[in-house]
């Protein structure tokens, strides 16, 4: 069983690199803070107006921030030539994908927490009103972004202009995540019950793209 071992090795290596260099997490954290500061000064802060559009705004900020980190996921491997090591892993290369996607997911969860903290401080968003639901939406939403973003990052690094290609491919594909997560966050903040169809929809999206990515990754890594 080489697969789980490869998964653990890739995940451990990516986490170690993230925590050591802050090449990805640093710019993401600074970008999120700058955007939130700009928004807090430019937008009206009346609490009555906020619940309607704040969730969509937060998820847009999170999507743009995550783009910075997802793009680096395979670009750094490509620049250092280390993508060869991943391609030569002695197992189905889908396990490499799972390791990279999990590392990206954890990184995005960190950024999500940071963005939520900034929203609480700068925009007076009260996450505590329905934290279990918001936590669930955050986990599933970040997973969807990490799965699709990791796959597209690997595809884009083989292209001539990866910086442009990633957002062009990513935005349309993650639109369902953005719409569902924004609505679910809005309903949770308003104290409403989130419809179970939305939970199923978000989880299904994650699962389908996880399966697709696992099976096509063998071909994606070969140039």
């Amino acid at each position: 069983m080489n697969g789980p071992r490869v998964f653990a090795a890739v995940l451990g290596k990516d986490l170690r690199l993230d925590l050591r260099s802050w090449d990805r997490l640093g710019p993401m954290a600074v970008f999120a803070a700058l955007v939130m500061v700009l928004l807090s000064t430019a937008l009206p802060t009346t609490s009555a107006a906020s619940p309607g559009w704040i969730p969509a705004l937060v998820w847009m900020v999170f999507l743009l921030t995550s783009l910075l980190g997802l793009g680096r996921s395979f670009q750094a491997e490509s620049e250092q030539g280390t993508i060869v090591l991943l391609t030569q892993a002695p197992c189905d290369r889908g396990w490499v994908f799972l390791g990279k996607a999990t590392a990206n997911w954890l990184a995005l969860l960190g950024v999500e927490l940071w963005t939520a903290f900034l929203c609480w401080v700068l925009l007076d968003v009260e996450w505590g009103v329905a934290w279990p639901e918001i936590l669930g939406v955050g986990l599933l939403g970040a997973l969807g972004l990490a799965v699709v973003g990791t796959l597209l990052s690997a595809l884009a690094c083989a292209a001539r202009f990866p910086v442009f290609l990633l957002p062009v491919l990513l935005f349309p594909l993650v639109l369902p995540v953005l719409v569902l997560a924004s609505r679910m966050t809005g309903e949770a903040l308003a104290g409403d019950q989130i419809a179970s169809a939305m939970w199923v929809g978000l989880a299904l999206y994650d699962w389908v793209f996880l399966l697709i990515a696992y099976f096509v990754f063998d071909y994606v890594l070969e140039d």
Binding site: R16, Q80, G81, V84, Q88
Partner: peptide, 14 residues
């Protein structure tokens, strides 16, 4: 199989 290309394939930060 041991492969060594023209790049050394090592992580600079490690």
């Amino acid at each position: 199989l041991g492969y060594l290309g023209q790049e050394t394939a090592l992580y600079g930060e490690l």
